[in-house]
Design a protein around this nucleic acid. Structure first.
Length: 552
RNA sequence: GGGCUAUUAGCUCAGCCUGGAUAGAGCGUUGGUCUCCGGAACCAAAGGUCACAGGUUCGAAUCCUGUAUAGCCCGCCA
C-alpha cells in the first residue's frame, strides 16, 4: 500500500538529514486530511521531530520535502504547509491500479490477514432464558455479530457463543411461575407471588403446555411436575430466543449450558486452583476470594454460608472453561449493569494464572426505549418489555441493525420506536442501500442498451480523471483500512459511518456524470468504477449484517 | 459515600484511543437543481463559548485534575 511506501521513504530521508533524531515507522503518522485542500495524505513527522530536536518544524518539513524522491505514479505531488505538515496527493495511476485491485478481489476486497492464526471467541447477548429478548439484547446482538464478522474478515478464526443461564434461583422461579399459570388455567385458585415472573408470555407458554400434556402434570409428584415444567419452559424460551436471533441474522456456533458446565466439575477445579494459589479464605461460614489482591476493591464470596456456589464462582468456572478451549482471546460483551464485575473477573482470571489480557470485557451501554418521546419502563417481572421481535416487526432488521451500529458502544442510546417507524423512510440505511440498488439499476440499463463491462484489463481506466470520479475511487479504496481499524478497536460503527461516505461520494458522481454514454471507452471505464463501488458497498454491508438490495 | 459511562449545531450522533490545519454528518429549517442511466437523489445557506474551570503543550473537542448535570452499578441475588 502507498502508506507503507511513504512511511518507508520518509523514514529514510529523515535518517539522511544531519542533526535529526530518527523516527521509527510507527512514529510516522499518515492521516487522511479532512480538507481536499490538504491533499490525500498528510504527515506531522516534522512537528514531532521539531519537538525532539528543538528546531523549527517548518524548516524540518522543507528539508524532508526537498530530499524526498517519490514515484510520481503513486504520489503526484507534495508540499509543506504551516506549521509543518507535509501533504501528499495521490497519483492517478495509483488510483486506477486500486480499482483493478477491487475488481480482482471482488468479495474478498477489504479482507486481511491481521488475525491469522488467532482463535477468538465472542460471547454476546447471553440473556436469561426467562423471557423473550428485549431491545437491549438486540443492540448486543447487532454489535456482537458485527464484531465477529469483522474479526473473521481480518483473518481471525471466530466462534460465536451464547451462554444459557439455565440453572439457579431464577430458573426455579421461572418453573414456579409457569406451574402456577398452568394450574390457574386449569381452574385452580393459586396466586402468583410478587417475586414471580408476571409476563403475559408465560400464560401463553402454560397454554401451550396444556395443549401438549393436558392435565397430566396435576397428578404427578410435585418434584417431577416442577422438573418437567422447568425443562419444557426452558426449551421453549431458548428456542424462541434462537428464532428471534436468527430472524435478526444472528446465528451462534455454541449454545453453552450453565447447567451442564456446572456438572462438569469446573467449579471444584477452580476452587482447587485458587486454594492452591492461596487466593482463598473462610470467613463467617463463607468462602472468599482475595480479589482485592488484584484489581478489585474488596474480596468476593465464592461459596455462600448455605454451601451454595455464587454466580461469581460459576462465572469464573465459565471463563476458565472458555480459556481452556484454546482461544487466544475471548471477548465478552456485557450490559452496563455488569461493569462492576469487570475488576473481579479480571482478578479471577489472573489468580488462575492466566494472562488477563486474553480476556477482553466490553460494556455495551444501555438502550433507553422511548415511545413518542416518553421513556418506556421495562421490567421483565412486571412483563412490560418491548421485545426484539416487536422491534424487528416494526422497523425491520436492516433498520434496527444499522441504527444500533451508528453509535459507538459507550454511548447511551435513546431509541424512540415511533420516530424509528416514522423516519424509516428517511433512515440512513436506505440512503446506503439506495446507492447499491441504483448501481444495479444502471448496470441493468447498460445491459439493456447492449453494453456490458469488458474484461477489466481491457478497460481504459485512465479515462477516469474527473474530480468526482477520482474522489469516489479514493473513498472506496479505504475499505481495507476501515475494516482493520474496526477490528483493532472492536468498533463496528466505523462501518456505518464509512458506508454513508461511500454512498455520498457515489451520488455526487452520479449527479454530475452519466455512466452510459455514446463513448464506449468512457462508458466501460465508468461501469468499472460503479461496479467497484457496488462491491465495496456490498462487502461493508455484509459485515454489519445488512442486506444489499438490487432494487428497492 | 465509592465506581462506570456520558455531556459536541434545534434534535440524533461521528470525531477523542494515537493532540495538529477553517470541529463534521444525518434529520429538521430556508432557498435552489429534474428534457438525462432510479428524486429513497443532488447543490447552497443558516445553525457551535465541543457542559464548566484549571493544567500540560508551539498547538487541546482530543491528554491530566477538579466541578456540575444525567443514566447505571455498589447482595453470602442471578
Amino acid at each position: 500500500m502507498v502508506k507503507e511506501y511513504l512511511v518507508r521513504k520518509i523514514a529514510r530521508v529523515i535518517a539522511q538529514i544531519d542533526g535529526l533524531p530518527r523516527l521509527s515507522a510507527d512514529e510516522i503518522q499518515l492521516e487522511h486530511p479532512k480538507k481536499d485542500l490538504h491533499g490525500d495524505l498528510s504527515t506531522n513527522a516534522a512537528m514531532i521531530l521539531a519537538k525532539k530536536a528543538g528546531q523549527d518544524p517548518q524548516a524540518i518539513a522543507e528539508a524532508i520535502s526537498q530530499k524526498l524522491k517519490l514515484n510520481r505514479g503513486l504520489i503526484k505531488s507534495w508540499s509543506v504547509w504551516a506549521p509543518g505538515f507535509i501533504n501528499f496527493t495521490y497519483g492517478s495511476r495509483y488510483l486506477w491500479d486500486q480499482l483493478l485491485e477491487i475488481h480482482g478481489q471482488e468479495k474478498n476486497f477489504g479482507k486481511s490477514e491481521l488475525g491469522k492464526g488467532q482463535k477468538v471467541q465472542v460471547e454476546f447477548v447471553s440473556a436469561n432464558p426467562t423471557g423473550p429478548l428485549n431491545v437491549v439484547s438486540a443492540r448486543a446482538a447487532a454489535v456482537g455479530d458485527s464484531i465477529a464478522n469483522i474479526l473473521q474478515a481480518t483473518g481471525h478464526y471466530v466462534e460465536r457463543e451464547y451462554y444459557v443461564n439455565d440453572t439457579g434461583a431464577q430458573v426455579r422461579r421461572l418453573a414456579e411461575s409457569v406451574e402456577i399459570r398452568y394450574r390457574q388455567l386449569l381452574g385452580e385458585s393459586v396466586e402468583l407471588p410478587d417475586d414471580a415472573y408476571h409476563g403475559e408470555y408465560l400464560i401463553d407458554l402454560a397454554r401451550e403446555l396444556i395443549d401438549q400434556v393436558g392435565i397430566e402434570y396435576l397428578s404427578l409428584p410435585p418434584a417431577e411436575t416442577r422438573e418437567k415444567i422447568r425443562h419444557q419452559a426452558l426449551h421453549k424460551l431458548v428456542t424462541a430466543q434462537q428464532n428471534d436471533l436468527k430472524q435478526f441474522g444472528v446465528t451462534y456456533d455454541v449454545w453453552m449450558s450453565e447447567r451442564n458446565l456446572k456438572k462438569s466439575g469446573v467449579l471444584e477445579e477452580v476452587l482447587a486452583l485458587l486454594t492452591e494459589g492461596g487466593h482463598i479464605y473462610e470467613r463467617e461460614g463463607a468462602v472468599w476470594f482475595r480479589s482485592s489482591d488484584f484489581y478489585d476493591e474488596e474480596d468476593r464470596v465464592l461459596i455462600k454460608e448455605d454451601g451454595e456456589a455464587t454466580y461469581f464462582l460459576m462465572d469464573i468456572g465459565y471463563h476458565k472453561n472458555k480459556l481452556d478451549r484454546g482461544f487466544h482471546r475471548i471477548i465478552d460483551l456485557w450490559g452496563p449493569d455488569h461493569h462492576g464485575y469487570v475488576p473481579r473477573m479480571r482478578s479471577a482470571v489472573e489468580a488462575l494464572g492466566i494472562d488477563a489480557s486474553r480476556l477482553d470485557l466490553r460494556i455495551i451501554q444501555q438502550v433507553n426505549l422511548l415511545r413518542g418521546g416518553k421513556p418506556v419502563k421495562m421490567s421483565k417481572r412486571a412483563g412490560s418489555i418491548i421485545t426484539m421481535r416487536e422491534l424487528v416487526k416494526e422497523v425491520g432488521t436492516d433498520v434496527a441493525r444499522f441504527f444500533f451500529l451508528m453509535r459507538r458502544l459507550e454511548s447511551h442510546l435513546d431509541f424512540d420506536m415511533d420516530v424509528a417507524v416514522e423516519q424509516s423512510e428517511e433512515n440512513p440505511v436506505y440512503y446506503v442501500q439506495y446507492a447499491h440498488a441504483r448501481i444495479s439499476s444502471i448496470l441493468k440499463h447498460a445491459k439493456d442498451q447492449g453494453v456490458t463491462l469488458p474484461a477489466i484489463e481491457d478497460v481504459k481506466l485512465s479515462l477516469l480523471n474527473k474530480k468526482e470520479e477520482l474522489d469516489l475511487i479514493k473513498e472506496i479504496i479505504l475499505l481495507p483500512e476501515v475494516i482493520l481499524g474496526a477490528a483493532r478497536s472492536l468498533e463496528p460503527h466505523r462501518l456505518t459511518v464509512y458506508l454513508r461516505d461511500v454512498a455520498t461520494a457515489f451520488h455526487l458522481f452520479y449527479h454530475k456524470y452519466r455512466v452510459v454514454t455514446d463513448n464506449a471507452g468512457l462508458t466501460a471505464a465508468r461501469l468499472a468504477l460503479i461496479k467497484a463501488t457496488q462491491v465495496v458497498l456490498k462487502n461493508a454491508l455484509k459485515l454489519i449484517g445488512i442486506s444489499a438490495p438490487t432494487h428497492m
